[in-house]
Each structure stands twice: as C-alpha cells, then as structure tokens.
Design a binder for these strands. Sequence first.
DNA 1: TAATCATTTAGACAACTATCTAATTAAAAA
DNA 2: TTTTTAATTAGATAGTTGTCTAAATGATTA
Lengths: 98, 98
Amino acid sequence: MNNLFKALNDPTRRQILDLLRGGDLNAGEIAERFDMTKPSISHHLDLLRQAGLVEATKQGQFINYALNTTVLDDLLVWLMSFQKTDTPTSAKTPDQTH
Amino acid sequence: MNNLFKALNDPTRRQILDLLRGGDLNAGEIAERFDMTKPSISHHLDLLRQAGLVEATKQGQFINYALNTTVLDDLLVWLMSFQKTDTPTSAKTPDQTH
DNA sequence: TAATCATTTAGACAACTATCTAATTAAAAA
DNA sequence: TTTTTAATTAGATAGTTGTCTAAATGATTA
C-alpha cells in the first residue's frame, strides 16, 4: 500500500491517471500533454507502474500505457471503513429538518 | 487535495488515523504508542491537521486530537469514479461461466 | 548499413521530508 | 514562586523526490 500512496502523492501522476481514463496512450503521447521533459514523464510512469496503477506493453517502437484500477480496491476499502466508523462528535449534530 | 495525499503518504500518519478511530487521544498518548520521539509525532500530527484529517483542541495542559473523516469524501469520490470508468480492456475478457 | 525516432537510463542538483536533540512555551502542582 | 509536566518550535542532518541534460538502447526507415 506504500507504493500506492507514494504514486498518488504527485499531481502530475494523478493527471496521468485521469488522462488514461480516456484510453491507452503511449509514452510520447502522454509526455506531449505535459510541460515537462520526456525523461521526467518516463520516471512518473515508472512509479505508476511500480504501484501497479498502469501496465506498460511494448508495441514495436512504442510503449503503450494502460490504466489498471484494481489496485485501488484496497485503498477504497480502507477509506470506506472510515466512513462507517461514526465519530462520537457526529452524534452531537441535531436533526436540522424540524 | 494535495495536502491530503501528502498526509496519507506516510505509514506512521496512517497508523495515527487508525488509532484515533478508537476515540480521541492527546499528543502524549499518541506518542506513547510509537517508537519515535514526541517532537516527531508532533510533526506528524501537524501535517494531519494541515490536511484537515484531525482536529486539535487544547484542554488545559493537554492537546486533544480527534479524527475528522469528512475530508476523505473528495478522495472517495475520485477513487470511485475510477471504478465506474470501465477500461476498454475489460471488454476483451470473455464470459468464463460457460 | 546508416540515420532517425521513441523511450529509458544515468548522473547531477535543488527542494522537500522524517527524524533527532535542545530549547521554548504554557499549564498544573508543590 | 519554583518546579514539574505536556507539548511545540527551532535547528541540524541523512535520505528521498522531482526535475533537468546527456547518453544509451532498441526499433523503424532510407
């Protein structure tokens, strides 16, 4: 889970994930959309790959990047468990409807 | 959202959040549970506070820390939007039931 | 084969982070 | 009022991170 949080802790990497929702892209196409050098984007893609958030597949000269959201499941479960756990404070809030 | 990801990107801070699910604790009680100096924990609490994940209220000599999970809502929404967005790849997977 | 193109790897550097010890602040107790 | 207690702030330091340029790799095209 550490790699996952690390990967998400950067605006560029989160933008890349959002970008890939529109469909797969190769490294160059991703880099084009950022005001940053290709090696920097390559590094971000590497961290996303390490976290399992993207899958890289070589296609000839190009490297295709695809979103993999299954890794987010654990995080989602952890987050939702917080929603369930009602804080003692929430009991203080009176019903505002009458 | 940047502060939020930053705050979550540390195992100690995530443990503190998990700890506070059992109820409020003051800084000393939190520090006791970690193999780390009080100033270090104090720093972690500060980052959690900056992210809005905990609320600090002074009670005499002590400072009480309480979980605030409302900040996680945005993150939860962002995450769930990935679950909905079916990747083109998933269509490839044939029905395995027959 | 030589040149070009897509991408990564290597190496450097400034900025940021986690941790520590020492000093400070502020409240409570003696 | 002096001392103790709870917690933070300040300052130092080692390690990590994001970014760059230059070099390397590997595939395609001329």
